[in-house]
Structure formats: C-alpha cells, structure tokens
Amino acid sequence: MGFLIFLFWAAITLGVAMAAAWAFRAVATAVTRGETQRALRNAPLTASFGMLVIFIYLVVAILAPLIAHFPEREVVGSQFMPWSGDHWLGTDALGRDMFSRMIYGTRNTVGIAFATTALAFLIGSVFGLLAATVGGWLDQGLSRLVDVMMAIPSLIFALLLLTIFGTSIVTLILVIAVIDSTRVFRLARAVAEGVVVMDYIEAARLRGEGLVYLITREILPNVTAPLVAEFGLRFCFVFLSISALSFLGLGIQPPTADWGSMVRENATLITFGDITPLLPAGAIALLTVAVNFVVDWQLYRASGLKE
C-alpha cells in the first residue's frame, strides 16, 4: 500500500514537473528572438525543466533577503520546532528558521560552487592553453604534474590539503579549484593541441604575433564550445564535492547557511521520521540533475547528432 501511495505521488510530481517545463519553454520561446528562440523551441522537456530549475535557483539566490522571513543566523525559536505557519519548515538544532536558511543557502552554496568552478576554469584553461601553445618542457612539466595530482583521489587530496591549511571558505575555494583545474587542464590542452597544428596558427606565428595574441585571438575562440559544455559538468562535480565536504563538517563553516552542513546538523531528525533534513540534500540533488539535463542537451546539440 505504501508503495502505491509513493507511486501516486511520484506520478503527480512528474506530471507537474513536465507541465511546468512545458510552460517555461512556451514563455521562453515567446520572449526570445532569432537563434535562441529556434534552439529553445527544439529543446526537449528534460532540458527545459533543467533551465526552469536553474532559473528558479537564480531568482531565489538574488532575492534571498526578500523571500526569507527570518535572518540567516539568528535564533528565532526553540530547537527542532515542527512545521508551522510561522516556521514553514520548522527550526533547526539551534532554533534557527529552516526555510530562511534554505533560501540563504541557495546564495551561499551555489555561489561558492560557482566561484570555485570559475576559478578552476581560469587556472586550468590558462595553463592548458599555455602548455599546448608553448609545448616543450613547459608542456611536459605541467602534464606530468597534473598526472601525479590526478593519481590521488580528489576528495582524499582535498581532505589532505584542508588539514594542512585549515578550514575556511577561502581555502576551500582555492583547494577545490586547484584540484579540479587538473581536469580542466587535461581537456583544454587536448582540445588546443588539435587547434595548434592548424595552418592559420602557423600563419599567425609567421606574422610574428605574440603568445598572448595567439592564445586569446586564435586558439581560444576555437576551443570555447567544448570548454563551455565541460563547465556545466565541472560545476556539478565541484558542487557535489563542496557539499560533501560541508556535510563532513570540513567545508563551509557555520553559522553560514549551507545545504551540506544543514543536513549534517539536523540528521538526527531522520531517525524520528522527519524528512526536513532531506530537503537541503534534495535541493543539491535537484540542481545537479537540472544542470546535467541542460548539459546533456547542449552536448547533443553540439555533436550535431540527429536521430
């Protein structure tokens, strides 16, 4: 019986999600023009659902102070209050409003993950493009260094570095960005390697163009597409590893509202049959699924496959 009820709710959720995705696509095609409109019109429902979710997260992150009823860090009630009209999702282990912390968590968790991914891309692609363009010992040195860094599992490496540098948001961002930039380096170097041997690069070299011009004006425009698709995937990995570290109590530190640590702080409720601690974890999962859907669609579009 319980299983049937679960199936019923799952079907309803799926239906609502599909309807919302469809409506979002309709609105999006109405407000855009030209190339974007054509792309959006052909987007599968999963991708429009993904875009809808990302859009909602963005709005929530930007408008966080307007949506949340209570401040992020203030104790506003007793511990573990149940869901009510005042506290929509109850209160947490210290008596802070869960719903407001979820809202602020969007800003903190997603913002930090985004900053980290951007930094990882900056480091990874700069060195990757440099290695491919300059070649020689620089390429060899950087590639071997990356090989060795990738021989250590990334979470383990992150834990090691966090022990040494201590846990703060800045070290967290730097550590994860450096570890993840090795993967970006591999991709950027591999893609750029194929571009560097082209005739137009040779021509530019013979013209006497400098290294910076070569990389930014000749190579970069030709490697952007795969790098952009990779950005989405990397974001998912970074987001999940930051959440995992926060969950372990080694990432984003309290009292900053963050989904990973919120799960950890309130996990005891689960054993009493309260699903509140699952919500922040679900929020993490939902965003990752959404980004994956959009990336899948973009990769499919870029590959030019037609069934």
Binding site: F247, A267, T271
Partner: peptide, 30 residues
C-alpha cells in the same frame, strides 16, 4: 534517466533516503 539522476545525487542524500525508508521501519540498523 534513473542512472543520470542517481549520479547527480550526493552520497549522503542516497544514504539518508535509505535510512528513512529501510532503517525507519526497522528492517536494518542505521
């Protein structure tokens, strides 16, 4: 699509769902 979603889930989410479903009802120790 189930696999794609499962990959996107943080491990602790999967773990707590299992605790909620299986340990809550007393089949397995959490």
């Amino acid at each position: 699509s189930t696999a794609l979603s499962a990959i996107s889930f943080p491990e602790f989410f999967v773990a707590y769902i299992l605790i909620f479903v299986l340990a809550q009802s007393g089949y397995f120790p959490s």
